[in-house]
Amino acid sequence: MAKIVTLEQRILKKNSEVAAENRRCFDEHGAFVVSLASSPGSGKTSLLEVALGRLRQEVAVGVIEGDVQTDNDARRIEALGLPAVQVVTNGTCHLDAQMVQGALEHVPFGQVELLFIENVGNLVCPASYDLGEHLRVVVASVTEGEDKPLKYPAMFRRSHALVLNKIDLLPYLRYDMNAARAMALQVNPTLKIFETSCVTGEGVGEFCEWILEQMARNHAA
């Protein structure tokens, strides 16, 4: 006999449950967590290097790095004298909540108040996976064209902030910043937008201030 069992459950229910566990762990340790996503080569790690240089003067910082292969990015953070944990996915194109949970035992929470999670370079897949973070930032460099938000709406819709990076290259590009901002806000009108250069440092200060403000608001809540 065949029968229909009605479920109406989220397919990624398990990921959501683990993400909630991660969030509880972060809150118990008083850590504010920010995830960074982008396509490969947008400058996530470089942005972190420059931003951490400023943020570390205010709060204790640490990073969980996600990559398909190598620990190059974790090494770059460690070279700054900051704690970094590398998650190597060996093929999986995104971090999920379980992978982050597995990394948590290596995070020195006693010395980390602000934790960044840098996702695998990919604008598609990470959008489906809540990691338990408090804030989601998407980075798009000006060399990628203005219409990334329209091409990858899921990622831009779920993000709290957009960093338009590599603005030092603008003199060499036909990039319409107004169009880029308009398209981003069309997809997500609540996006906070920053324009940065990791070479000149322009805009990174404002980005750091905003993160610290969000952190303070989270602690007050």
Partner: peptide, 23 residues
């Protein structure tokens, strides 16, 4: 230009039609 989507983020298992293994 500017639409507020009311749905579109779903990734749901709606139902399963099951049978006895002996069927």
């Amino acid at each position: 230009r500017g639409l507020n989507f009311q749905n579109g983020d779903e990734l749901h298992l709606c139902n399963i039609e099951v049978e006895d293994g002996q069927d």
